[in-house]
Structure formats: C-alpha cells, structure tokens
C-alpha cells in the first residue's frame, strides 16, 4: 500500500526527518508515536501528499506520489493537525464540497456525505454552521471530511488532540471502525490511544524511526520486560525467595509488608506470570494477586526515546 524509501525533509538547514524507510500493508492501522517536534506531522504531511520531501521515494497504492501527486491524492483522505473547516458553511454543504473536490459527481455526493456522517456520528449537525460546533464535533467533522470520498488511505494527524476523555474513547472506537475499509495512519502522543487502535507502531524520534513493530515486539526490542506485581499472604522474604528462583526473573523487591499482606515487585516479562504463580502455589504461598505493572507502552516509549529529550526540546523551542 505504502512504500517509503529514504524520505528526508529539510526546513532550511534543519532536518525534520532523516532517511525514513518503511512499508505499510493494505488494511493495516499504523500508529506514529513521537514527542512533539519529533517529525510526525512532517511525515504525515508528506504521506498525505501535501508537502514535498527534499529527497526520497514514496509509492502509494502503486502510484509514485512524488512524480504523480495528483493521482496519488485521489486515494488519500487527510486530516491535518487542525481540521481544515470553513466556518461559514454548514456541515452537510462542507462535506459535499470536499467529496466533489475529490472528484465525486455532484449527484452522488449527498449519499456519501450521509454515509460519512453516520460513521462519524455527525448526522445530527448536518444543517448546522461549522462555526457553531463544539471542539469534539469539529474534530469528528474533520475525520468525516477525510473519509467522505472513501479513500484507500487515511492519514489522521492527532485526531484526539484537545478532546476530553469521553470524546477520546469515542474517537478511538471511531478509528477502530475505520479499520478494514481503509489503511489508516494515525499519529499521537497519547500512548494508550495508539496501543489500543493500531496493529503496528512506528516510533519517531528526532526525525528518525527508532523502533517499529507491534507492542510486543517493541517491548522485546526495548528490553522493557516490564514488571509484575505480586501480593501474597505471609512473610515477604519467603515469597521473594521463591519468585527469584523462577528463571527469567531478573530481580525482586519488596514494595510493602503490612501485617499479613506483602506486596512484591518482580522485574520480569508479563509472560512469566503463569510460571510465577505455579512456583508460588507449589511452595505453599497464598497468592492473592498477580498482574503487570504500570502502562507498559509508556515505559517502552520512554525507553525508546530516552537520550533525546534535549533535541526534542530544542525543536519545540524553535
């Protein structure tokens, strides 16, 4: 669906992205993860055929998007970081305009508009002026304008920015519903959003892809085995000894010990939970709770982007 090779973009002397190469299969939902200023928006603008790269190759659905951007744009729906809305138009008229701009015949536009409105839950504001919409609706109309002409590729730049928690959950399910019909690229710095909606993640740091793969693969590469929290009845020392004996556990620490209950933290991959449980039960320790600790993706992300916060801060300042 998308093949990117050696994509580089310079703004004057500053390289926003450097030598990006990756490929995306049809129907995949890909998350672009990165701090502000890491090069997410620049990458998405190039993939959306809005911006031209300084060098590199880009093929979208078999079309060379650099030499024939006009043809490539017919296959793309793009939502930039601020939704491109005309305040003085009604939602319905606006979506119809966008559909026709993408070559949909005027007679067929209305049906597509209604479908897009159904999918993005904006049907009820069809006749409202865009200037009167709340932020949540504006963001959804933004998604609607990207999907209205049924593009093969959807590029959504931070669709959840500025939304409240309820709207973020709605946006997440909206993006999940788009899966299948479109190949979707989403960028975000909201980790939970990305891990739940995307098949694969590309982590961008200072203009380079520092890691890619599923959440599991990333965890392995980052060496972020994660940690497991264990709650047992009885003395912590004995339980810690048992857990330490399980192969793959790199360390155990006692988090708290109050009366009957003890909480331990084992530095181990979450996949080791069955082995840990079995070992504790076999050793006659009463196991009360066993779960993985913290937001896993968060720790992966922090590990992958570690060492570069200075660069990111500099870019943000600029």
């Amino acid at each position: 669906m998308i093949e990117v090779e050696g994509l580089t973009k310079y703004y004057a002397a500053h390289a926003a992205i450097k030598d990006l190469s990756f490929s995306i299969k049809k129907g995949e939902v890909i998350g672009f993860l990165g701090l502000n200023g890491a090069g997410k928006s620049t990458t998405l603008k190039i993939l959306g055929c809005v911006l031209l790269p300084t060098s590199g190759h880009l093929r979208i659905d078999g079309v060379d998007a650099i030499s024939d951007p006009h043809e490539a744009r017919k296959r793309i729906g793009f939502l930039p970081d601020t939704p491109p809305l005309y305040d003085e138009m009604t939602v319905g008229a606006y979506l119809s305009f966008v559909a026709q701009l993408h070559g949909v015949a005027p007679g067929k536009a209305r049906a597509l508009v209604e479908e897009a409105e159904e999918r993005t839950a904006t049907r009820e504001v069809d006749r409202e002026l865009i200037s009167s919409l709340s932020h949540g609706y504006r963001q959804r109309v933004g998604v609607a304008q990207a999907v209205v002409h049924k593009p093969a590729l959807l590029v959504l730049d931070e669709p959840s920015s500025g939304l409240d928690p309820v709207q973020i959950v709605e946006m997440r399910s909206l993006i999940r519903n788009l899966k299948g019909e479109h190949t979707v690229l989403v960028s975000s710095h909201i980790l939970s959003e990305i891990s739940q909606t995307c098949d694969r993640l590309l982590v961008i740091q200072a203009g380079e892809i520092v890691a890619q793969g599923s959440e599991e693969e990333l965890a392995r590469r980052a060496g972020a085995g994660g940690a497991v929290a264990i709650e047992v009845r009885g003395a912590a020392a004995r339980a810690a000894e048992v857990v330490r004996g399980v192969s793959g556990v790199s360390g155990v620490s006692v988090v708290s010990e109050s009366g009957e209950l003890s909480v331990l933290r084992a530095e181990a991959s979450a996949e080791l939970r069955p082995q840990i449980a079995r070992a504790l039960v076999n050793a006659n320790v009463d196991l009360l709770r066993l779960d993985r600790v913290g937001d896993r993706l968060e720790s992966i992300f922090l590990k992958l982007t570690a060492g570069a916060p200075d660069a990111a801060a500099k870019q943000e300042a600029a």
Binding site: K45, C49, R73, K74, F78, P80, P84, L101
Partner: peptide, 8 residues
C-alpha cells in the same frame, strides 16, 4: 489550505 493541497 491543507484541504486544497491534499485534494486532487
């Protein structure tokens, strides 16, 4: 303008 730029 991004809408115009991303349209064919």
């Amino acid at each position: 303008v991004a809408l115009l730029y991303s349209s064919p």
